[in-house]
Computed example of a mutant assay.
Amino acid sequence: MGFRDKFREKRTIASKWLLCILMSFPIFMIGIKYFGITIDKEWSLAIIASIISATLIEILDNTSNEKKSKLYAEQQDMYNDLISLCKKHHYKEATFIQYSGRKAVELITQLHKNETKIRLFVKHPETAVGVEQTRRIEGVLDNMSTEVGGTHGAPIEVTAYRTEASLRGLMLDDKVVALGWYVFKKKDKLSPKFTHDDVNIWGHNMPGILLYKGNSNFEEAANFFRKMKKHYEKHGERLSSSSD
């Protein structure tokens, strides 16, 4: 941590304590004026007021931190945070744009438990890069209709696209946007199971960014995601729904 970062951290701590003192003063004065607090009890009241103020500041601070945009070194960490978020907040609709969707199944499962209506766009298995990716997509589709979708909860609608894939992202209720990218790399060594598959697709271990409504550049990111969604709606092929 550099000098500037340390200075900012110290300044933030000092600001919190100053706010705590300022918030404690009105509580202190109300106690004296309306509850007849005597001099010998004033210090007790001051301590209680400080504790209440500090607790309120901590709650507000945690809430604001949850709503800050964040850049992740790996998208899987971002998806883990989204799972935690969806355990606290319920969303009506969720849209996913994925390649196979295999690494998003846990988040989709959590949303399905919350009765969230889910729209999943995946690469069409007939146009996937290699046998391994084809099997992954087919496995996810089977999973959506059996284990995840089942017979309860909001429907999960799956649409497959045939165009080349680059975006890995999701949107929750037009309030949360997560964006990441797929990287295609030549394999250094072929798998003995998939001897003709010479390309690796990396997504979950690539960088990603999480934005909340109200964050700077949220609307630009959300509009980009909506455009891609419309493109896949127009050119995609609906494969299944858990309610079918």
Rank of each mutant, 00 (worst) to 15 (best):
Ile108Lys: 14
Leu71Thr: 06
Asn114Cys: 00
Met78Asn: 02
Asn62Phe: 10
Met206His: 08
Asp244Arg: 07
Met228Glu: 15
Leu239Tyr: 07
Pro26Lys: 14
Lys234Trp: 07
His231Ser: 12
Met228Ser: 12
Phe3Met: 06
Ser64Trp: 03
Pro207Gly: 04
Pro192Ser: 13
Leu85Ile: 04
Lys187Phe: 02
Val158Ser: 04
Ile97Glu: 03
Glu42Ser: 14
Asn65Tyr: 03
Gly236Tyr: 05
Leu85Gly: 04
Met144Tyr: 08
Thr127Trp: 03
Arg238Asp: 09
Arg11Asn: 09
Tyr232Trp: 11
His90Pro: 09
Lys117Met: 07
Gly214Val: 01
Glu132Pro: 09
Phe35Gly: 13
Lys229His: 15
Ile118Asp: 14
Asn80Gly: 13
Ser241Gln: 07
Leu141Arg: 10
Ala128Lys: 00
Gln133Met: 15
Ser191His: 00
Ile59Asn: 02
Pro125Asn: 06
Asn223Ser: 15
His112Pro: 11
Ile21Phe: 14
Lys67Asn: 06
Val158Phe: 00
Ile57His: 03
Leu60Arg: 03
Lys213Cys: 02
Gly203Cys: 08
Ser69Gly: 01
Tyr72Pro: 06
Pro26Tyr: 06
Leu172Asn: 11
Thr195Val: 12
Thr95Arg: 14
Asn80Lys: 05
Ala46Gly: 06
Pro125Glu: 07
Ile21Met: 15
Ser53Thr: 06
Lys68Ser: 08
Tyr232Pro: 01
Phe25Leu: 13
Gly130Met: 04
Asp173Tyr: 02
Ile13Gly: 00
Ser166Tyr: 09
Met1Lys: 12
Thr38Gly: 14
Glu93Trp: 04
Ile13Tyr: 11
Gln75Met: 11
Glu164Arg: 06
Asp173Asn: 13
Phe225Gln: 11
Arg226Asp: 15
Lys230Arg: 14
Met78Ile: 00
Ala154Ile: 12
Lys33Ala: 15
Ala222Asn: 05
Ala165Gln: 06
Met144Val: 07
His235Tyr: 10
Tyr72Arg: 02
Phe28Tyr: 14
Lys186Thr: 12
Glu58Asp: 13
Trp43Pro: 03
Ser242Trp: 00
Ile32Phe: 04
Lys33Thr: 15
Ile59Arg: 08
Tyr79Leu: 14
Ile51Asn: 06
Thr159Gln: 01
Lys92Trp: 03
Ile201Met: 05
Thr116Ser: 10
Gln75Thr: 05
Thr195Tyr: 08
Gly169Tyr: 00
Tyr161Val: 01
Asp81Gln: 02
Thr159His: 00
Phe224Ile: 04
